[in-house]
């Protein structure tokens, strides 16, 4: 569904990604694994068009995402939950969700669906986003991305710094998305979460691909993951 082919990208003249290729399928969770600085977040920004590609291409089904201006990428059905959440802190919960619906304004019932998935956000609807707790902010970040009814969701460390009950809630929603046929691309550092969720994993090292392993391979031999996690 989402396909990266030989993507080169970076910041200014500093190239970070070299020849990154992998594919994320609908109804599957694809983990993106690598140590800090390996290029996981850079890969996500490159998919979103927030970094200009130096080479290669990104496509979603028939659509060539890498040929579009960045603001048209979400219109094709790509939802982004960035690292550190990056909500519009001065806007209310409701306004954050409204921004999420900008790309697909004809989705009438989507607000109700999203609020059913995250009932806590209904209670906080007219509160400013920066007054929410960390877990609630993460829920809002997920809800904002789901508001455009995405075909692909990019989740960049969604459980970082959250308490266990919140981690479980986020994980439930991730599984719900997968079961609804969304292609999930997940950056995650906790081994047990990766083993439980990942259908496959793309391994990144210093901006280069080190191969793709299936969920079964990882569960048979978790030592594959060593060297691709942590600092």
């Amino acid at each position: 569904m989402l396909k990266l082919e030989a993507v080169d990208a970076g910041y200014g003249r500093a190239q970070v990604l070299r020849q990154v290729s992998f594919e994320a399928q609908a109804g599957e969770i694809t983990c993106l694994l690598g140590r800090n600085g390996a290029g996981k977040t850079t890969t996500m920004k490159a998919i979103m068009g927030l970094l200009p590609l130096m080479g290669g291409q990104v496509r979603l089904e028939a659509e060539m995402l890498s040929a579009l201006p960045a603001h048209q990428v979400p219109r094709c059905g790509v939802g982004y939950v960035p690292q550190g959440r990056r909500l519009f802190g001065e806007l209310t919960v409701g306004q954050n969700l409204e921004v999420g619906r900008f790309s697909k304004p004809d989705n009438e019932g989507v607000l109700e669906e999203v609020l059913q998935l995250f009932p806590r956000l209904r209670e906080r609807f007219s509160q400013r986003a920066n007054t929410l707790s960390g877990g609630e902010q993460q829920m809002l970040a997920m809800a904002r991305a789901l508001s455009l009814r995405p075909k692909v969701v990019l989740l960049d460390e969604p459980t970082e710094g959250l308490q266990p009950s919140m981690i479980a809630a986020i994980r439930d929603v991730t599984e719900t998305m997968r079961d609804q046929g969304v292609a999930v691309v997940l950056v995650e550092q906790r081994v047990e979460a990766i083993l439980a969720l990942a259908d496959r994993a793309a391994l990144l090292e210093n901006g280069r691909m080190r191969g793709v392993v299936s969920g079964a391979e990882m569960r048979d031999d978790p030592s594959i993951l060593a060297g691709h996690l942590g600092v």
Partner: peptide, 9 residues
């Protein structure tokens, strides 16, 4: 960047 990522031109 987040404005761009949610479709604001």
């Amino acid at each position: 960047d987040m404005a761009l990522a949610f479709g604001i031109p």
